[in-house]
């Protein structure tokens, strides 16, 4: 479960030149969440994430930040650009020193919540991002690491561009 955590740490420390932008945002209140979102979007844009992917990243970031606020009260989110061979991605690591999660499997199930929320936070974040890892120790805190890779240009991209209204609609061929 910790592979991504180790991986993102290794990637960022072993090859400093690939880490072109990093930020650490302390999350204590509502305003911090807004600021974290803006920074994540700025770094994502710089990285070349599509607008569509930026929306996914921003949504995931909000969920992670809300988890910090509602379960631990405070924590931090580390934002950085990571490189894995030819692909580059935006990594976000959310850390808190809250009560920890007793049953991670259960917390990753849709609709499970201890705070009366929709219970879509963690499983939702996992769906939104490309990589997802979580570690939690009761009484010590929780760390969630996620990453979104920059998509290679291709057919899927064109389809997405169409979905978000920036491209031409595919013309159906008739034989």
């Amino acid at each position: 479960m910790t592979s991504l955590l180790d991986e993102s740490t290794r990637l960022s420390s072993a090859s400093q030149e690939t880490v072109t932008s990093t930020a650490s945002v302390i999350i204590r209140c509502d305003a911090d969440v807004v600021s974290a979102r803006q920074q994540a979007c700025a770094i994502g844009e710089q990285l070349g994430l599509l607008r569509f992917d930026l929306a996914l990243v921003a949504t995931a970031l909000l969920e992670l930040a809300h988890n910090i606020l509602s379960h631990a009260g405070r924590g931090e989110i580390l934002l950085r650009i990571v490189q894995d061979g030819a692909r580059r991605g935006l990594s976000m690591v959310a850390r808190d020193e809250g009560p920890g999660i007793a049953d991670i499997e259960l917390a990753l199930r849709d609709g499970y919540s201890t705070t009366g929320s929709l219970g879509l936070g963690l499983p939702g974040v996992r769906r939104l991002m490309d990589e997802f890892a979580i570690t939690s120790v009761i009484g010590c805190g929780t760390t969630v690491a996620v990453c979104k890779w920059v998509r290679q240009r291709g057919g899927y991209d064109r389809h997405l561009a169409y979905c978000v209204g920036r491209g031409r609609a595919p013309v159906p061929r008739r034989g």
Binding site: R51, F52, L54, A55, L56, A58, T59, E63, D110, L118, L120, P123, G124, V125, R127, L128, C163, V164, G165
Partner: peptide, 14 residues
Amino acid sequence: IQPDVAIAMVQLGL
């Protein structure tokens, strides 16, 4: 609701 917001909402499960 913007198209990319809608897609993100669906992925999140909302």
